[in-house]
């Protein structure tokens, strides 16, 4: 059976990718952030998954406003790297894991999650930057296949935080029931606090972020109880991306160990963080009593 070995929470700020692509990771502006990644990267390099399930949001690239899925899953053999308007990132194309995708899709739909199915999908910085955070030097190919899971965080009504945690719990059950010996990692991406537009542009709320970084491990149900307005008020209009961390957290069992974390301000307009959790053996139960709403 497939095994969920770790979960990674990470910001997916485009400029983090650009700093890597342009060899600026040793610049004074970027060095503290990348130094903070180092211990997590070392640990992950010793614990390599066959497939990464990457929970992210598209940013006006693969999804247009004519049709906005709430939750979507990619089921393709391969995913092209999107040109977001400033040329595609010079990173390898992303290999899919269509059998695992279909298994997860069917499991989730059977459980009452109304997944949109993407048979073709161009992936943007929301997915490729987390891959680069995991693997800075992929060479010609990423070291793992990918199942993309997309969440609508841009257009109200976003899914509730509780619904995201419930999706993660169902995702965990789906992974654990896949009848092949695969090692799987789950990425929850986006955040932390940031707001791009309006009079509050430039908002950073370190206090909220620190609380979130702690509580995502110890009491995800408390974070699932926060409203969309709570997230937007505290973490900014784009900080609501943090609900995607709850999908990752829900997939992990109750028994997890924090391997490493780092928090840094700023990555361009954003508070950037990484938190890596090992999923401990025997942790196949549920992390919370959250209702599926």
């Amino acid at each position: 059976m497939a095994e969920l070995i770790w979960g990674l929470a990470t910001s997916h700020v485009p400029s983090i990718g650009a700093a890597m692509d342009n060899g600026k990771t040793e610049d004074p502006y970027w060095k503290p952030l990348f130094d903070g990644y180092a211990p997590a990267r070392e640990w992950m390099a010793k614990h390599t998954p066959d497939v990464a399930i990457i929970v992210y949001n598209d940013h006006a690239n693969a999804i247009e406003l004519n049709m906005t899925p709430m939750f979507a899953i990619g089921t393709a053999d391969a995913y092209k790297v999107a040109d977001e308007g400033w040329g595609s990132r010079n990173v390898p194309p992303v290999a899919g894991a269509p059998e695992l995708s279909e298994h997860i899709l069917v499991s989730l739909v059977d459980e009452g999650f109304d997944m949109t199915v993407c048979q073709e999908l161009e992936v943007d910085h929301g997915l490729t930057v987390p891959l680069s955070v995991y693997c800075p030097d992929p060479g010609d190919a990423w070291p793992c296949a990918v199942v993309p899971i997309l969440v609508n965080v841009i257009q109200y009504p976003q899914p509730t935080a509780a619904r995201c945690l419930a999706l993660g719990e169902a995702l965990g059950r789906a992974i654990r029931s896949f009848p092949k010996d695969l090692k799987v990692a789950v990425f929850g991406t986006g955040g932390m606090s940031h707001q791009l537009a309006g009079a509050r542009a430039g908002l950073i709320n370190e206090k909220f972020d620190r609380m979130f970084l702690e509580t995502i491990e110890t009491d995800p149900a408390a974070l699932a109880a926060l409203s969309r307005e709570d997230y937007i008020r505290e973490a900014g209009s784009e900080g609501i991306e943090l609900i995607m961390w709850l999908v990752m957290r829900g997939a992990l069992g109750p028994g997890i160990r924090r391997v490493h974390e780092t928090y840094h301000v700023p990555a361009s307009n954003t508070a950037a963080a990484l938190a890596l959790f090992e999923n401990l053996p025997g942790g196949a139960g549920q992390p919370s009593g959250a209702s599926p709403r």
Binding site: T75, P98, S101, E102, H103, V106, D110, Q119, E120, S177
Partner: peptide, 24 residues
């Protein structure tokens, strides 16, 4: 375990594998 693609003799059931195969 999740459900599996219904198998009904004489009937095509269009699932994700078929969709992938017939995409072009």
């Amino acid at each position: 375990m999740p459900s599996s693609t219904p198998e009904v003799p004489g009937t095509y059931v269009f699932d994700v594998a078929q969709s992938n195969r017939g995409y072009a």
